[in-house]
Design a protein around this nucleic acid. Structure first.
Lengths: 200, 200
DNA sequence: CGATCATATGACGACTAATTCATGTTTGAC
DNA sequence: GTCAAACATGAATTAGTCGTCATATGATCG
């Protein structure tokens, strides 16, 4: 089901590096806007301003581009969240800032968000890994908080997935479909729910 | 973006009705297993045991079949949930039984679940309506519970989406990816989180 | 029975998209 | 400045899907 695939070799010159980037950027824009299957290779290469054959110098297929973009989005989001919760003093504060930062990220990168969700139907393994990785990080943070006595005892695994789920759907509702509602109006009630749900 | 489309007329005979059903069932199976774009019309008609042209007697396009299936899944799930929370005496019990029934439904109908999620990338309007409808129902239930004093005051809209999000991702994690973990091990911790999160 | 409407068929034309490749251009190490 | 390697190209090949239609079969009723 999933391509095992030997990656294409990295570009060896500056020009190659630039061309690869152009293709990747054009692909992110096009796929983010129109969706994966509605976007053809020639759409991408045309938008990138390169020949069709050039695509295959750097990528095996559209799927491989998607895979790379999901990884990229994981890194971007991780960084955004890490930065957002950097100054927080306890788990509850981290939940608040993390949720706010997540919805904020979705508002700022609706295309990337969409790409990750669609990857589920293109290469399930990469989508699953994306979530599993986040879940593992989240779980570790919850266990640490539990050890510090900041939150009540309870399954960190289930909690991690439950809280991620909240964030994902709130991100859809208030990050994509409705970008007018102030973040505080969303984050406030949600964090109230979370806070009472997990505190000692 | 969304087809406004005049529907095809309903079948006028028993035979027609049966043929239509065969196509719909075959489509649900095939699309649920392989995904929407990987499934061709001829895959569907071959699986249904009818000619390719027969498809177009009953449907305008693959998209229309998907739309119908999302609606169907909405009805099925609604019924499953309604039945599950029928005997409950308060909101918290309803949350428990509802969440259990939801994951149970996903385990029993992984294909249907997948179809709904994929509909997001085929006909966003129908997907959105699916969630909006559920959210409206959920919200009403929460508001009623709040009026009865069963739960604390708070934004029913945000809560509804947060709780749906929990269910959706727990459904993915424990309904699709891992069907071995006993439901109690999932529902217990989740309902503990919800219960303390919303009770007075 | 024969007439008529509904249903069924599958080959076919039109089209779209993926991928290759022979040919040409650019780069940068020497 | 030379030259081999890296890169770029787009037309041609390949593969497959959609949706139509002329034709055929099934069912129903007077």
């Amino acid at each position: 089901m999933t391509a095992r695939a030997s990656q294409k070799p990295q570009p060896k010159t500056d020009r190659g590096e630039r061309t690869r980037r152009k293709i990747l950027d054009a692909a992110a824009l096009a796929i983010g806007k129109r969706g994966f299957s509605a976007t053809s290779i020639s759409d991408i290469t045309a938008a990138a301003g390169v020949g069709q054959g050039t695509f295959y110098i750097y990528f095996q297929s559209k799927e491989e581009v998607l895979r790379e973009m999901v990884l990229q989005m994981g890194r971007d989001l991780r960084q955004h969240l890490t930065q957002a919760i950097a100054g927080t003093k306890n788990r509850l504060e981290a939940e608040r800032e993390g949720l706010r930062a997540f919805i904020d990220f979705v508002r700022g990168n609706p295309g990337l968000y969409r790409i990750v969700e669609e990857s589920q139907f293109v290469d399930e393994a990469i989508y699953r890994r994306h979530y599993m990785d986040f879940a593992a990080t989240y779980r570790a943070a919850l266990e640490a908080a539990e050890a510090r006595g900041e939150i009540r005892k309870g399954s960190a695994e289930v909690r991690a997935w439950a809280l991620m789920g909240m964030a994902v759907l709130l991100g859809q509702r208030y990050g994509i479909w409705d970008v007018a509602t102030p973040l505080d109006d969303v984050v406030g009630p949600a964090v109230d729910l979370i806070g009472r749900g997990i505190r000692p």
